[in-house]
Design a protein around this nucleic acid. Structure first.
Lengths: 66, 66
DNA sequence: AAAAAATGTAAAGCATACTTGACATTTATA
DNA sequence: TATAAATGTCAAGTATGCTTTACATTTTTT
């Protein structure tokens, strides 16, 4: 799965740490998502989508993996 | 998080086991999601949404948890 | 009512999401 | 150029998603 997290975060002029605070997760979690080290839980995906006022599908791009 | 999985599965006339096969997960996983024992990973949520031709937000209902 | 099919659910194990802490590297500012 | 700010990344630990096995309960069919 790919995502547009870094792109969207930068559009809004946020640092990783600020986004992490807003989402109540660690800075490393945000960095790990941006760099594709792992995927978010569905709860975190919802939090992110809601925070940015977008829907999950517009931020996270599913592409027939496995 | 709530979900409309059981409702949608029954609308389509599927058994838990059939849905599980289509999603490549176990029958217990489908049952556990329907009964709220745990939430799907975001990959499974995408698979489910894509299988039903719906978007994640129409199947899984996020409600400010934690 | 009896048998079969579908669903509920628990335990133990493995995989992955997320944490904190620490330190290295890159980017921006003085 | 030197310093600070932001980001990258690793390791070890905890929590949760998902598996298989197994058995109980409910629902459907005969």
């Amino acid at each position: 799965m790919k995502n547009r997290l870094e792109e969207i975060r930068k559009q809004r002029g946020l640092r990783q740490e600020e986004l992490a605070e807003a989402l109540l997760v660690s800075r490393q979690t945000v960095g790990s998502l941006e760099n594709g080290r792992y995927n978010p839980s569905i709860l975190l995906a919802f939090k992110i989508a809601r925070y940015f006022g977008m829907c999950i599908e517009d931020i996270f791009i599913y592409e027939e993996e496995n």
